[in-house]
Amino acid sequence: MNEEEKTLVEILEESNPIDLTKYITYVSAPQAGAIATFSGTTRDTFEGKTVVELRYESYVPMAIRCMKSICLSARSSWNLHSIAVAHRLGTVPVGETSVFIAVSAVHRADALDACKFLIDELKASVPIWKKEVYSNGEIWKENSEFIERRLELGKKDGICSGREAQVKAHDTRTCCRAKVKVDDGEGIADTSTSK
C-alpha cells in the first residue's frame, strides 16, 4: 500500500455522535478526484411501530479486525486512495447517523462501487447488534445480508466476509475509455500495426 493511502476504522462508544466532516477530511487528497460517502441514519418507524430509540453494541476488537479485512478486500478490487469507516455504539437517537463510510479514489466509479461494497459487507459480517426499542417492547434486529451469508462465514481463512469483492465492472468500458487507451503504449502499438 502506498504510504499516502490510509484506512481508518472506528467504533465509537456511547454518546459520541459521528463527526462526518472529520472522516471526509481524512480521506481527502489532492490526487483523489472523487469522495463517495454513505451515511446510515436511524429510522423512526419499523413496520408501522414507532421506534423510541435504538441501542447498538459490538464485539469491538473483532468488529475492527473484520472491518479492516473488508477494507483490504475492497482495495484489492478497486483502485482506492483512502477509506474511513465509523460506527456508533450505545443509544442512537432517531434521525442521527449510526454508520458512516467515506472512500476516496482517483475516479468516481471506484469510490462509488467500493462504498456500496463496504456497507453491504459491514451489514453481512461485522459483529455489531442493534436493538429497536418501541413504546410496547423491544427487539434485536437481524440483517438479511447476514442470514444469507451465515453458512459461508468461517469457511475461508483470513477473510472476515467469506466473500471476495465482486470483480469490478470496469471491463465494460465506454468509447471514452477506449480513446484514452490510445495514449498508452499498447494503444500506440495497435495504431501502428493497423497502418
Partner: peptide
C-alpha cells in the same frame, strides 16, 4: 469463543 447471534449493524 464468541456466540454471534444474527448481526444487525448499519
Amino acid at each position: 469463543l464468541a456466540i454471534i447471534p444474527p448481526i444487525s449493524g448499519g
